[in-house]
Design a protein around this nucleic acid. Structure first.
Lengths: 206, 206
DNA sequence: AAAAATTAATTAAACGTTTGTTTAATTCAA
DNA sequence: TTGAATTAAACAAACGTTTAATTAATTTTT
């Protein structure tokens, strides 16, 4: 792994844990085991490192649902199920990145970066909305509020996993329970969301 | 308004906008129009001011649903509707405080404060869970995952309102659209959540 | 009620750290 | 031998906090 990637990884970890302003360049350099000056040398500044980080990581989640929309061999609910599992999988794989994105969005700072982040998130959003809208048009889904339906799916996952402490307390778990390593929780969230979406969306649902 | 309250208000505004580490003591003092030294004088430190702020503001949302749980003249769905409207109302009234709480929870800093915050949030959580569980026992509700159902309600609201920029983009609104002053959006979220909960929870729902 | 004494509030300035970044020297690789 | 990589040191600026002096308010004493 080359030095720039090591720095990006360290920054990812620390920004996720302590936030951007809560993390010092020296912190990052220490975790990455490089000289603090290397961050300016490679990225120009701490803020540009942040931008590079978002850009770099965002590649993984860019347009992953795009092809799914035009798939004709799956029902709309089957597509939505894939979307749900996809979001859950991503959240469990790198929760820190999700925390970072949403935290940055909720701050009134770095509007340019906020814009970039929301554009990235929006791309998947548009795909999923198309899936729901198609379902409604085909008569497979009820006439629902597509935008808010997506907010419910994503919101549930984020709300459940935005804080380990809170998650443990909500689920009445002990200190040894680690949400992000719990396969059970992962399945539980998926199960809930699929049930929720079935009763919310399907027309022939009793 | 006495000086301490002015400082608390300024801190509330700035912590909400820029985060705790992103706000300097001098920023707060400037907005509150007091000498920076007054913050140490009154609160001891910036961090203790933060704790005081949470404690102070939390009083407003402590146990507001407690009496609702034991109300016998309302159906469980009627209670839940009140809960939903209550959460929405609170979120529209002081979104900054909600942002602040959830941002702090998602950070790995100040574990003591995180604990205090989650305890505050948990109190309402327990009330609402009781409402759902009672509904299930009475046969009014389906056998659902109570904890995750609450996460869906709160998560939807938070996800929709955690960022003005993102909200605008999701709803395809122009720059003049202010989510937090939009009565229409408020009603739309309420409408969506009630429909969502009806189809998710009610047994006799076709 | 006036004066004196005491406490509280407020200030500008300075404190020592830590911040992000730059410099200039040095090592490494091509 | 040239250019990139790496370093320790230093930079000015900003940070949270403290100090010491002054003003304002309150209480006590006359």
């Amino acid at each position: 792994m080359d030095k720039q990637t090591v720095i990006l990884s360290a920054a990812m970890k620390l920004f996720g844990q302590k936030g951007f302003e809560g993390t010092s360049v020296r912190d990052i350099a220490s975790v990455a085991e490089v000289n603090p000056a290397m961050i300016s040398y490679y990225f120009g500044s701490k803020e540009k490192l942040f931008e590079k980080l978002v850009e770099h990581k965002a590649a993984y989640l860019k347009g992953v649902f795009e092809e799914l929309v035009n798939n004709t061999s799956l029902s709309q609910m089957e597509k939505l199920t894939i979307v749900i599992d996809g979001y859950i999988e991503r959240m469990f794989q790198s929760p820190q990145f999700n925390h970072l994105l949403h935290r940055e969005l909720s701050l009134e700072r770095r509007p340019q970066l906020k814009n970039a982040i929301s554009d990235i998130l929006l791309r998947n959003f548009v795909s999923v909305r198309k899936i729901i809208q198609d379902g409604v048009e085909k008569g497979e889904f009820k006439k629902v509020d597509a935008e808010l339906t997506i907010a419910s799916v994503l919101g549930t996952i984020n709300h459940m996993l935005s804080s380990e402490v809170m998650c443990r307390k909500m689920l009445q778990k002990g200190k040894d329970f680690n949400p992000f390593q719990s396969k059970k929780l992962k399945e539980r969230i998926g199960e809930h969301l699929k049930q929720l979406m079935c009763s919310h969306l399907l027309v022939n649902n009793k």
